[in-house]
Simulated scan of single mutants.
Amino acid sequence: MDTITRTERLHVRKMTTDDHLSLARIFEDTDAMHYYAGKTPDASSWLDWTLENYRKYNIGMWVVEHRDDGRFLGQCGIVPHRIAGQVEVEMGYLFVKAEWGNGYASEAARACLRFAFHTLCIPRIVSLIDERHARSVNVATRAGMVKEKELLHRNRHVALYAIHQE
């Protein structure tokens, strides 16, 4: 497995086609996808997109698993994204609903930011968040991100949260 990073509780690794069924658990859950901008993807197209990001940019969404038992918790990662006419590196996270409330998303987000800053030397990471999604806002702020502005992105009002490498 292509390990990206680890924490005390988490193993973050590159996605493979074997992750299809695990990803489908997220994409087929209306609660998990309620605030997702745009059409809800299916696991196959998401895997194709992610693997293409690995090929093109050597970054993308990564699988987050529990270190103790290897169970799939969700995904967190960074992807180049055109936002308001410029390319930014955006961090995203989507977790299995049954795992919400355990701090896994915040822990994974902090680990991915450390990897982005210290290993990849990316100077700035952003997240686009529908502010009605309090859980997502909480993950971003716990990871040290701050709201910079509000904007219209893909016909939705979102807030842009950002953090800069120290």
Rank of each mutant, 00 (worst) to 15 (best):
M1Q: 09
D2V: 09
D2A: 10
D2C: 08
T3C: 13
I4E: 02
T5E: 15
T5V: 13
T7W: 08
T7D: 08
T7C: 08
E8F: 09
L10K: 00
L10T: 04
L10V: 05
H11T: 13
R13D: 01
R13E: 12
R13G: 02
K14W: 13
M15L: 15
T16L: 04
D18A: 14
D19L: 04
D19E: 07
H20E: 14
L21Q: 10
L21G: 09
S22I: 04
T30A: 15
D31Y: 09
D31F: 11
A32V: 10
M33T: 11
M33N: 04
H34E: 13
Y35S: 09
Y35T: 03
Y36D: 09
A37K: 07
A37D: 12
G38N: 06
G38W: 01
T40I: 14
P41K: 02
A43T: 07
A43V: 07
A43W: 03
S44H: 10
S45M: 05
W46D: 15
L47F: 04
D48A: 14
D48L: 11
W49Y: 13
T50P: 01
L51Y: 02
E52H: 10
N58A: 15
G60N: 00
M61L: 12
W62I: 03
V64Y: 00
V64Q: 02
V64R: 02
R67A: 15
D69V: 04
G70I: 05
G70C: 06
R71M: 14
R71Q: 14
R71V: 11
F72Q: 02
L73D: 02
G74T: 01
I78W: 01
P80I: 01
H81I: 08
I83R: 08
V87I: 15
V87F: 15
E90D: 13
L94N: 13
L94G: 12
V96P: 10
V96M: 09
G101P: 05
N102T: 06
N102F: 13
A105R: 00
S106I: 04
S106L: 08
E107N: 06
R110C: 14
A111G: 03
C112E: 06
R114M: 12
F115M: 08
A116E: 03
A116P: 00
A116T: 05
F117Y: 07
F117N: 00
F117C: 02
T119G: 06
L120M: 14
L120R: 10
C121F: 13
I122V: 10
R124S: 10
S127N: 02
S127C: 09
I129S: 05
D130R: 08
E131C: 07
A134F: 11
A134R: 10
R135W: 09
S136M: 06
V137T: 08
V139C: 05
T141H: 04
R142Y: 10
A143N: 07
M145H: 01
M145S: 01
M145G: 00
M145C: 03
V146D: 15
K147M: 12
E148M: 08
K149V: 09
K149E: 14
L151Y: 05
L151H: 06
L151D: 08
L151C: 12
L152G: 07
H153W: 14
N155G: 12
H157C: 12
H157M: 11
L160I: 07
Y161A: 00
A162Q: 07
A162K: 00
I163H: 01
H164T: 11
E166K: 08
